Amino acid sequence: MSSETPAPSSGSQPELVLARWSDRFFAWLIDFVMVQVALYAIFAAAAFPFWFDDFSRADRFWGDGPVRYVITSVVFFAYWTFFESTKGQSLGKMVLKIRTVDLAGRPVDTRSAAIQSFGKAFLLPIDVVLGWIFTNDKRQRLFNRASDTIVIKETAASTQPSTSYRKD
């Protein structure tokens, strides 16, 4: 049986294949690199006029420490909330063919996308570590649990209200 194809389950319940932690990490890494490159390009372009005047002013334009963290976290939060509430997947998840859905396999709403994106954008180490420590059969991070969302392989999406889960 292929890992891409859901195995038949007992009864009429569809089976959702949960995404691997490694696939989720690589999707996050792709998103992280793309957003960071875009942010750097935007801020470098905005600071360009200051480069010839006073380079230290250009560096202050981008910010440092907490300011940089807040700016990038807000951008990541908006990025993940938008993509996961409209398409069910960020660009990194599209590449790896995984998606965020509710526990029944349906697309997530904006509220759920925002809750689970908050953990990824602002508290990722805490979100992941506590998710691993208190893991369950649905491979949920802490904020996935709070939003009642899971991450599945894209080919296994279902809209049936009654669902079983299988780890990839």
Rank of each mutant, 00 (worst) to 15 (best):
1 M>S: 12
4 E>G: 11
5 T>D: 04
6 P>M: 09
6 P>L: 01
8 P>A: 14
11 G>S: 13
14 P>G: 13
14 P>I: 00
16 L>I: 08
16 L>R: 06
17 V>M: 10
17 V>Q: 05
18 L>K: 09
18 L>W: 11
19 A>N: 08
19 A>E: 05
19 A>R: 05
19 A>W: 03
19 A>D: 05
21 W>I: 13
22 S>P: 00
23 D>Q: 13
26 F>I: 09
26 F>A: 01
31 D>P: 03
32 F>D: 01
38 A>F: 07
40 Y>G: 06
40 Y>Q: 01
45 A>S: 14
45 A>V: 11
46 A>F: 05
46 A>C: 12
46 A>P: 03
46 A>K: 04
49 P>F: 04
49 P>R: 07
50 F>W: 14
50 F>I: 08
50 F>H: 09
50 F>L: 15
51 W>E: 14
53 D>I: 15
53 D>E: 14
54 D>W: 09
56 S>Q: 08
57 R>G: 03
58 A>R: 05
60 R>Q: 13
61 F>P: 03
64 D>E: 13
65 G>Y: 02
66 P>I: 11
67 V>C: 02
68 R>E: 12
68 R>H: 07
69 Y>N: 10
70 V>G: 05
71 I>S: 04
71 I>G: 01
71 I>W: 06
73 S>C: 13
73 S>M: 12
74 V>K: 08
76 F>E: 03
77 F>K: 10
78 A>W: 05
78 A>V: 15
79 Y>R: 08
80 W>D: 05
80 W>M: 03
81 T>D: 04
82 F>N: 05
83 F>R: 08
83 F>I: 06
86 T>I: 07
86 T>D: 03
86 T>W: 10
86 T>R: 15
87 K>E: 10
88 G>Q: 07
88 G>I: 06
89 Q>D: 02
89 Q>E: 10
91 L>V: 15
94 M>I: 13
96 L>N: 09
96 L>T: 07
100 T>H: 02
103 L>T: 15
106 R>G: 09
106 R>V: 01
108 V>D: 03
109 D>W: 00
111 R>N: 07
112 S>L: 04
113 A>N: 08
114 A>R: 05
114 A>W: 04
115 I>V: 15
116 Q>N: 12
116 Q>H: 14
117 S>G: 14
117 S>K: 04
118 F>K: 00
119 G>D: 03
119 G>V: 02
121 A>N: 08
121 A>K: 00
123 L>T: 10
124 L>H: 04
127 D>W: 00
131 G>L: 06
132 W>M: 15
135 T>S: 12
135 T>G: 10
136 N>S: 07
136 N>Y: 00
137 D>W: 00
138 K>S: 09
139 R>L: 13
141 R>L: 07
141 R>P: 04
141 R>S: 08
141 R>A: 11
143 F>H: 10
144 N>G: 07
144 N>H: 15
144 N>I: 02
145 R>M: 11
146 A>R: 02
148 D>S: 15
149 T>P: 04
153 K>Q: 14
157 A>E: 14
158 S>Q: 06
158 S>C: 11
158 S>R: 07
160 Q>W: 04
162 S>T: 08
162 S>E: 12
164 S>M: 01
164 S>G: 06
167 K>W: 03
168 D>M: 09
168 D>Y: 11
